[in-house]
């Protein structure tokens, strides 16, 4: 069928190339199955490009508009509103409260739930801080605003739709002395929590930072009342 030694070697070589092609093709087909399809990648890359271009254009426009409306009064008003909306990080004196689950071993027959921190413990503590005049609050570096929730989410607590587990660190900016004494009232929050062995640590500090609100506000249902916008 085949003549000569050279012909045989060549034949084996050629068939080897065929085999290499077969297995590499097989491997890349397996690989393609696991990754996002090429088409999809190209599509996404295209969309990213247009979005980036749009973003760039809008940023340009924004700076231009800022320059146009650069009067000092408006800038001051804007900063004021951004402070109220919690869009700026704040710093100042205040207290830092660290809460951790109880280290006390629950006695048999006792409800173990009483020894862990619940959303309402946090809420009571924060309510007390607010009553004592806290101006900016954060739980585990998550800014607390009028729309922030603190709610039980299984074994964790959800704040601004982010879940946190103990230890919780509450930062409040305000008069440090007033804030601490409000928490340490006889029969107050800390005393109740201490009773169950939950560790509460209150520290006064002169330079605390409360981060800016990272989420977005949506007004899908609420609209400005007709005639109420000046």
């Amino acid at each position: 069928m085949f003549q000569g030694k050279q012909a045989k070697v060549l034949m084996v070589l050629v068939c080897m190339i065929l085999g290499i092609m077969l297995s590499t093709q097989f491997k890349s087909a397996e690989n393609a199955k696991n990754s996002i399809s090429q088409q999809r990648v190209e599509d996404l890359a295209e969309r990213l490009k247009t979005a980036e271009k749009d973003n760039f254009k809008l940023k340009d426009e924004l700076t231009k508009l800022h320059e146009q409306s650069g009067s000092a009064a408006i800038t001051r008003e804007l900063t004021n509103l951004r402070i109220k909306a919690g869009e700026l990080a704040m710093e100042g004196p205040g207290v830092k409260v660290t809460l951790d689950d109880s280290t006390v071993v629950s006695k048999p027959g006792d409800n173990a739930n009483l020894y862990i921190i619940h959303d309402d413990d946090l809420l009571r503590l924060i309510n007390e801080l607010r009553a004592a005049g806290a101006e900016a609050l954060a739980v585990n570096n998550e800014r607390l605003l009028d729309i922030s929730e603190i709610r039980c989410a299984g074994p964790t607590v959800s704040v601004n739709n982010n879940r946190f587990s103990p230890p919780y660190e509450i930062v409040a900016i305000g008069d440090p002395k007033t804030l601490e004494s409000a928490l340490r009232l006889r029969g107050g929050v800390i005393e109740t929590l201490k009773f169950w062995g939950i560790s509460v640590d209150v520290k006064q500090s002169d330079d605390l930072v409360v981060p800016a609100f990272k989420g977005t506000r949506r007004y899908d249902f609420a609209k400005v009342k007709v005639g109420d916008s000046k």
């Binding site: 034949m11 084996v12 050629v14 080897m16």
Partner: peptide, 12 residues
């Protein structure tokens, strides 16, 4: 040819 193909698959 068969030896060649098998070798190629292993190398690939």
């Amino acid at each position: 040819p068969i030896i060649g193909v098998i070798l190629g698959i292993i190398v690939g």
